[in-house]
Design a protein around this nucleic acid. Structure first.
Length: 274
DNA sequence: GCCCAGGCCTTTC
DNA sequence: GAAAGGCATGGG
């Protein structure tokens, strides 16, 4: 267990902004599951507490990116003098870009394509419950994300039966490829080469690849989905239609801050219209 | 019944 | 290389 100040940290915003799908309301905060571990996070006043086994303190500090100074990121975002971005950054200043496990992000964002967040959560929970390992923390049971060995043992009919729809065959392909090849090789590549490799997975296109690069490999990227495309037109006056071109437009503009700024914009736009 | 969801694949021009 | 259909499923 450990505590930290929550000026530039908001657990609800960080968890609900669409980068992770495995958390639930729990007591005064959230029960969060990431790969094979779980914690309980809650905020009281200006202090946030993470309850976890003490030997996992560093794991969760890294997961929530607590060593990065987000006040500077928010200031840089406001420095572009784009009103919609300034409002987004101010509203989302408590959002952290989580450092998540590569395999979990690859599988999760394959599930995410042309899907809605409640159903994404449901499908991923079913994968973990059926193929993961049962554990418990604070008296609550949870399931680890399955190993790729275990995941690759499931066939297409399994993924269909838990509601994955037409993505079932994509999941079979990815699980087998990850079991056979691992992700260590991918971590050594520069970002352009990494994207090229990710695009070789069935069911991974430009947008999903960028989410995996940002959330799983912790590198700058600017995923363009339906919401970003909408705000690109409505709030940036953009006229491009190709998503790859829109991605390049934003990555050229925001550089190393692309990932943070993309989350501020995405989360603000979605929360305003829902 | 419609339309949409953190899109991608395949076919066609 | 761009544009259009199709795709599983559940929520609104």
């Amino acid at each position: 267990m450990f505590t930290f100040p929550s000026v530039y940290f908001n657990a609800k915003d960080t968890l609900e902004c669409g980068q992770t799908f495995r958390f639930e309301p729990f007591e005064n905060g959230f029960f969060v599951t990431a790969w094979d571990k779980a914690c309980y996070i809650f905020t009281c006043g200006a202090t946030t507490t993470i309850e976890c086994p003490d030997e996992e303190n560093d794991y969760w500090k890294n997961y929530f990116d607590l060593e990065t100074d987000y006040s500077k990121i928010v200031e840089r975002a406001k420095g572009y003098d784009v009103e919609f971005l300034t409002l987004s950054a101010e509203s989302g200043k408590g959002v952290r870009i989580l450092k998540q496990r590569e395999e979990e992000m690859i599988i999760s964002f394959i599930v995410s394509q042309n899907n809605n967040i409640p159903r994404i959560k449901k499908i991923l929970n079913a994968i973990c419950q059926n193929l993961g390992e049962k554990k418990s923390f604070l008296g609550r049971e949870y399931y680890t994300f399955p190993t790729m060995e275990k995941l690759a043992g499931a066939d297409e009919s399994f993924f269909s039966s838990i509601g994955a729809g037409y993505r079932a065959k994509y999941l079979v392909f990815a699980a087998r490829k990850l079991r056979d090849e691992g992700v260590e090789r991918l971590k050594e590549l520069d970002t352009a080469a990494l994207k090229t490799e990710l695009l070789k997975f069935l069911g991974i296109g430009e947008k999903v690849a960028n989410c995996i690069i940002l959330f799983g490999f912790s590198r700058p990227a600017f995923p363009v989905d339906t919401w970003i495309e909408k705000l690109y037109r409505e709030n940036f006056g953009g006229t491009l239609t190709d998503r790859g071109a829109i991605t390049r437009f934003f990555e050229d503009k925001f550089g190393a801050d692309s990932g943070y700024i993309q989350q501020y914009l995405f989360y603000y736009k979605r929360s305003k219209e829902n």
